[in-house]
Amino acid sequence: MGHRGLTRSELLTAGAKRAAAVAIGGAAVGIFADAAAADPLTDNDLAFARLLVGVELLSIDFYLRAMNSGKFQPVGQKYLRNAFTNEVDHNRTVSDILVGAGYTPASATDFEFIYPKKAFASRGSIAALGRELETVGLGAYLGAVSGVQAQALVPPLSRIATSEAQHLSFFAYELGGHPLSSAFPASLTIDQVSAVLDQFTA
């Protein structure tokens, strides 16, 4: 069953609703800025922040394309929409690390994302790509958790990793597998994540 693509207005509305939910549910937004301001960050930690912004911008782009593909049923579409708004929130919060340290984070206009041919041609191909990207996203956050030097960053990074794991479960289920995978998901190094990002950027 097909569906129409999301308009910019709908996306903004979804983002606004999600932002309101975050505000009610515990105000995740801003926690990184506070951490950056309280504890001057090293180049190592800022490099992780830049990498994670890249990961999130790729995820946002992926979910937009997935939602607009018309390949998912309403229930699946709802999952995609929720994951999309999660990624928007994640991007805002990891960008805050850089903002708090006085840097300008990258934005979507700084990237030209590319995908394998037919990546969005079917529900299965989208789910396979989603599983790949969310595996990298989860690994990137787990790598950051163990790699950053500012301990104030560890709790919020861990919370985002948990969210990425939920996204990964959705795609595992979509592909007919079990939504629960490894008891100890793999963390990835910064160069491993960077190599994957390179595959999806022009």
């Binding site: 830049r50 890249g54 990237f111 960077s194 390179d198 950027t201």
Partner: peptide
Amino acid sequence: IKVPAWAQPK
């Protein structure tokens, strides 16, 4: 060889 997009300056 690419320089990663996430590290590119403006």
